[in-house]
Design a protein around this nucleic acid. Structure first.
Lengths: 204, 204, 204, 204
DNA sequence: CATGAATGAGTCTTCATTCAT
DNA sequence: AATGAATGAAGACTCATTCAT
């Protein structure tokens, strides 16, 4: 494998510029309302040249979705620490909620879900990301069950999904509440809700 | 109140036909991918005539969103029975989950949320619906707290929102799982999750 | 010939209402920018009913142009007094300039001329009106020539046309000057110009 | 100043082709009756490409109006010679009348005036052109007054406007007379009229 | 790799007019 | 005479994409 030449990294930088420009546009006006021209302009390149880097508008969206994967890693790292499952889970919730509550992430999540419905390729990327997070949470739940610090879930995978659902939904809710709701309080409520939902039948 | 004339009802029927046609189209191809021509064609009327009934494409979407309100009523009715809060809540969950899991409802929810981001009018209609459901659930939670059959929520409203979030998310999840997941099992898991989340600290 | 019944006059009134409404619309937005719906609405009748009175949008315009003829009469009356040709001509100029300077008349003249280019029927009506005025002025010029108070025109008809041109143009100019020009001063200048143009070679 | 590249001139040529095509269409059917498709077709380009050169239909009209300015220059040149004001003026009248009598110029003038009423941008372009001509005529009149070969105008600017009015109106009149009137005779009559209108009180 | 002119199907919407009631 | 729903062609304009340079 040859080391990346300057040319190669320059190209990647160019691609990055496009992706970033596209992301900005999508967040501001939505995927469908954004024109390829607009993206190229914001990226500072010519319209035609964009097609030398991406096969089309959709490919740009796919690239963004793929890059999203990178942002997932820190959360997987948090979940990897399974010494104290409950503490870890709560730490994860705090961290992920902070991330999911960013308006840009809310908007982009919706845009992605919405696009997923009629676009299998995007759906696949989206599911991938989701599955890796759910899998990690699920592992933690299993560990906690084994340790006896969580109750017996009849279906840990499903429980993991529901916890993730709550986190994503929180972002959406805060977005539409539009400042009228305190993020930190909402996160605390979510933690309380989850803690109750996973604690063993008899309080410790 | 004067009785509706034949003309009036015929007009309403026509409007209904358009709304139904539009709904079908939106579900099949999404709001943005659907052309006004397509709607008119499916409704069996001329393109121009559609504009005699609606001011534009967006107005059709708004009408659909407004009609959605009617579908909400049965669930409010269920929640109104607060004799046995827990049983009522579980009944509501079953009913609403069934409803939210219908592919058409999933798709339409997403389409509506997605549109809400860049379209305040739709956002308002959507929020209205949501608020009425959350309010009803919240009332029930308060009653349950007073009765002692639920734990003390530090914030019943937020709890209600989370329960609703779980229900909406369930639909989405089942939709993307695309047959690979059993609806009934998932609903049971959700009930279990919520039951644990709201029960008093010491098991009854 | 039977006397007009109440019904007949009511109909004419209705037609008048339509014509007036149309005129208002045309002045405000121009003939092409005005929709038939708009006219009907302003006239207080239904869209379909307008077609019971006029064969179409163009027919309404034609009717307006025809009615314009009536407004011409007073000026023909002024010109009919040929005792003192110069005084009469100057009186006519004052009166017609006042009329031609009204914004509504300017706009309508332009609209009519513009439409005349691609529409022979309108052109005919327009020319009719014009010809009757030019004819009357021409008669006056001939009388003045015979009386010796005007110079010998090599072509009185053409001279009459030019005087009328100056009057119509004055309206247009005042319209676009938009308040920056004094109407009365402009009329005085026009009178001076015409007086010089028609006086005999040696000053009286 | 860098020399225009081949590309630049090719582009300007393309723009010219569009402008010419549009002009043809406008003359034939009028501005409002002409569709953008028609222009593109006549220019031999695709519909969409027209929008790469002009922001819209109106911009094409504006460009035409702007180009009209160039045609004005020769007349300004004629008027610049103020050695013999009367001779110069008469030469100008002949030249401008010839120009103004061309059917295409008549039609286009009307179209432009008509559009000016509801469209300030076009009005501005139109006024510009007009003002430059009136200004030049006015200068000449002033020179002629100083030389004593013209009478004392109480308002030379206004007089200049009236002379221009006569010229424009002549075109219109000849257009509607539609062959029934001799252009040259009409021009002679106009010259006679103006000569009388500007000569000093006592014949030379 | 870079450019932006060129494409043409596609967008929503408006319009004058007709017609059943 | 009166209504307004129905028609469908025409309106201006946008778009993702291609291609010659």
């Amino acid at each position: 494998m040859s080391a990346p030449t300057n040319k190669e990294t320059a190209l990647q930088k160019r691609k990055m510029r496009i992706v970033e420009a596209a992301l900005e546009c999508f967040l501001e006006n939505g995927y469908h309302q954004t024109g390829v021209r607009e993206i190229a302009k914001k990226a500072g390149i010519s319209l035609g040249n964009l097609y030398n880097h991406f096969s089309g508008k959709e490919a740009v969206l796919a690239e963004i979705a793929a890059l999203d994967r990178q942002e997932t890693q820190p959360f997987l790292d948090i979940l990897a620490d399974d010494e104290q499952p409950e503490a870890t889970l709560l730490r994860f919730i705090s961290a992920y909620a902070d991330h999911a509550a960013l308006p840009e992430n809310v908007i982009f999540s919706i845009e992605l879900v919405s696009e997923s419905i009629h676009n299998p390729e995007i759906a696949a990327l989206f599911n991938d990301n989701w599955a890796s997070l759910v899998g990690a949470v699920s592992s933690l739940l299993n560990k906690g069950m084994a340790d006896g610090c969580f109750r017996e879930f009849s279906n840990p995978d499903e429980t993991a999904e529901m916890i993730m659902d709550l986190l994503e939904s929180l972002g959406l809710r805060l977005y539409f509440a539009d400042g009228g709701k305190k993020k930190d309080a909402a996160i605390d409520d979510l933690k309380e809700f989850v803690r109750c939902a996973i604690r063993p039948p008899v309080a410790r």
